[in-house]
Amino acid sequence: MGKEKNGEQEFLRDIDRFLNGEEVTPDEETGEDVRSAVEFAHKLTELRAEPSREFQESLKSRLLRKLTEQEMAARERAGAGWFSGFLDRVVPQSPVWRTAVVTVAIMVVAAGIMWQTGLFTMTSAPGEGAETAGDNDRGLVEMTSDDTQKDWSQNGMAAFGEEEEEEEEAFVSSPSEDGLSTLDSELEVLMEISSHDEITITIEPLTTQYGTEVTLTLTFRNSSSTAVTIDPIQPEIFVRGLDNELVYTLPAVDGPEELLPSESFQMIYIWNQQDNSGAQVPAGTYRFNIGSIIITCGANSGVIITPPAEVVILEQ
């Protein structure tokens, strides 16, 4: 029994050492049973598998979206709590009074809707109001009408492709009746950043020779009047073929954590036309994208998805 216990201690000590990266050479006195168990334990570590970069990125994006949804739900709950508290304070507790107040409120809202839709005046164009609200409903991701972004949305990159609709819904702001008046200034800043493509990837030149380096410039620009924070501050750029297959991941470069009003920041990435195994990629078109960037402005935050940039590598 004592011998068995000693063997166990020896085994545990040795495997802890090799799991910590230390070299393990068994003592001469080590019994065959323990020695072969330690050797076999080495074999067990060979089963270790690492998650693919693609899986890591897509799961991270999903979790960030979920987190944003949670935050928005928390904000809505906080808003609802404030409203019911306000109602309790302002409206007398009597059921008769409450009924009267609610009836008047409904009538005012109905009148407002009728006026807005032109039923009173018959002169204002019903489409106008609806269009504005519709545009707002699209939220941060699709605020821009830029053709490039639409193109990209249709193609869909692997990390976001199928879940794009879900993502759009996650960032729908509370639409007001006129579509604009209830947006607070922070949310406007986020929309402004999104709608003006303030995070861009540019490539120079757009067509390049086989085997030469491709220079990418990632630009963050805050043209709003409010400071914004950016996450991640070390974004990686993913290189994909036209079939959406991940070819290479450009290592992260240090970026800014916060951008003050009117401030901009550029990060330079170099791609030597190699794939993840270090081999030269074939000639063709390659896309670059940075996945999702979270911009936070005060209490609001949103995911900004940047349209990818493309480069064409010419035949050798």
């Binding site: 928390a74 904000r75 209490a299």
Partner: peptide
């Protein structure tokens, strides 16, 4: 809970 920007961040 996640109510203020600091907590959220």
């Amino acid at each position: 809970g996640v109510n203020s920007s600091k907590e959220t961040r």
